[in-house]
Design a protein around this nucleic acid. Structure first.
Lengths: 254, 254
DNA sequence: CCGGAACGGCGTACAATGTACGGGGTTCGG
DNA sequence: CCGAACCCCGTACATTGTACGCCGTTCCGG
């Protein structure tokens, strides 16, 4: 598993796959037993169930009933497969029609749609950052989300900036949630078990005289939500802040 | 490289390492040739120069002139080493004293300090999310950053929320920048080369009638900054939005 | 002073991963 | 009908983290 990065190979080849452009020329040899969509679907299924690290070429092949090396006739390598997976789930996301509603409601819907995407596919938060593969699914998603910024008085560059900012927030939140869950699964300890194991040493070493704010506020935050970090609360709090921040810009433009 | 996650092992053991608590009891056997700080420093040096993926146990050992397995007498495993690396760079970050300045200036300084941290150690953006190892470096950093929220009229939980929100933004931005650079280095293509390779196919497939906003705004954003994504611009834009969003909360509390 | 136990250093080995290479069978254009 | 293109895939290799166990060193208790 060298990297989880995408867009690693030849851009033209990757784009041709994303847009399902068959290579021109004569078709020789036996018919293909699978098709690209089946490979991508199998990989997405594995990732949804067991996380990105479960998406090994061998596992995907086994899920499809073929030998591992067979996959390389459909996909140049694992990096491109990740691109295709991401574009596939982007294509599937629900897109509410909020035309005519106020901008704040429209952007809230965009945030919720992305939150739902990451809830269904937690691995997607870890794959790319705000440079998605320029496939049909991601492009349609981008188009839909830009529509939420119609009639805001912003210029084109500002609209891209605002959308990027909003999506970056949602993705960062989803990534934190996914990592917290992965840590729980991997260590086998829930939050309470972690504290009983770490508590005594922390109590001895976290001197309230030396770290007054950290000890007090860390304890308050931990008590407020059940755990050390509550992604749901961070999402609600953060989304309100992000929208307020965008409001300052949008209101100034009117 | 199974995972880049941290906090994988026994919490008590990890915390004892972070706080440099020597195991009690009699000291037998030969004196240690290295110490933990040297191991961590070597790993940080490798990561700074060549990225996280260069931090293999074999590479760290070679940098120290010992055999790979020797490291395991200092560190339980790679995950704990990552925790120690992160806490070490947290301990080293510059901390400006902005007491008495307005809150917006203080939070800007906090953001800048974190930005500088990620500039010096790009890998740090990829390691943890907002659940850092509770070591002395991270705790001191948390304490310092909370001080920027003194006298804002916020309660304890809100202060943690605001700081988390701000840091999450800076980290997400740094992660995007690091991934963009890694993609450039790994593929060997800069942005212009990527476009000349991908341009023709994209021109054929990105139908302006089907994706009017995406085509227009994507082109405008790409033209505005030199590239498809400009982390510096996203940082300046996003930080202003984040501070405006926090202002809406803080001003309401007064 | 000495013997056993604890410890540091590390050589070897193993399982998992992505994927290069090449062979064998199948299909089709000329 | 034959050669070339293409599919499927068995084998192999480099790279990773790290478990296991051997050997020599050091120190405590007698």
């Amino acid at each position: 598993m060298p990297t989880d990065r995408s867009s690693a190979g030849d851009p033209a080849r990757t784009l041709a796959l994303l847009w399902r452009q068959p290579p021109g020329g004569p078709r020789r040899g036996p018919a293909r037993a699978l098709d690209l969509d089946a490979v991508v679907a199998a990989a997405v299924g594995l990732a949804d169930r067991d996380g990105l690290e479960a998406v090994t070429m061998r596992a995907v092949a086994q899920a499809l009933g073929v030998a591992p090396m067979t996959l390389y006739t459909y996909v140049p390598g694992r990096a491109e497969l990740l691109d295709l997976m991401l574009d596939a789930v982007h294509a599937q996301t629900a897109r509410r029609d909020t035309a005519g509603r106020p901008w704040r409601e429209r952007l809230t819907a965009v945030a919720e749609e992305n939150r739902a995407l990451f809830a269904a596919h937690p691995w997607a938060a870890a794959v790319s950052t705000l440079r998605p593969p320029l496939g049909p699914g991601s492009t349609a998603k981008y188009e839909h989300e830009l529509a939420a910024l119609d009639d805001t008085g912003l210029d084109d560059v500002e609209r891209d900036d605002c959308l990027t900012h909003l999506l970056s927030f949602v993705q960062a939140n989803a990534r934190a949630a996914a990592e917290a869950q992965a840590a729980r699964r991997q260590s086998g300890l829930d939050d309470a078990q972690w504290w009983t194991a770490a508590g005594p040493l922390l109590a001895r070493v976290l001197d309230p005289a030396r770290y007054p704010r950290a000890v007090r506020i860390g304890a308050a935050a931990g008590a407020a939500h059940g755990s050390a970090h509550d992604p749901d609360h961070a999402y609600r709090f953060g989304l309100a802040r992000v929208l307020d921040g965008l409001a300052a810009l949008i209101d100034a433009r009117r």
